[in-house]
Amino acid sequence: MPKANVTFEDIGITVTVPAGTRLIEVSEKVGAGITYSCREGECGTCIMKIVSGMENLAQRSVLEDKVLQENMAGRNNRLACQAQVLGGEIVVRPG
């Protein structure tokens, strides 16, 4: 199965994960600082910054796009509960 490396910059830990994993599945277990509330892509609590590797995440859904816009998120932001890794290297931090 293809793998991806997700680095949580705030805690200095890189996790090797299977492609298709959502960030939420990893960040909570590893103790990264990204926080969650609804966990279903509605509230925007888990907005995170993609430091690098945006191209290694699946495209935003219409729903995620709407929530990011409503929260005035920037181009480098994604929702950790929605973003799915495809492969390669991804570096994220809360925010």
């Binding site: 200095g12 830990i13 890189t14 996790v15 277990k29």
Partner: peptide
């Protein structure tokens, strides 16, 4: 961690699941 001197670690998802 506070002083920014923690060694960076690489772990596999399966270790996290076990933990």
């Amino acid at each position: 961690h506070l002083t920014g001197r923690i060694a960076r670690r690489v772990i596999d998802m399966s270790e996290l699941l076990k933990e």
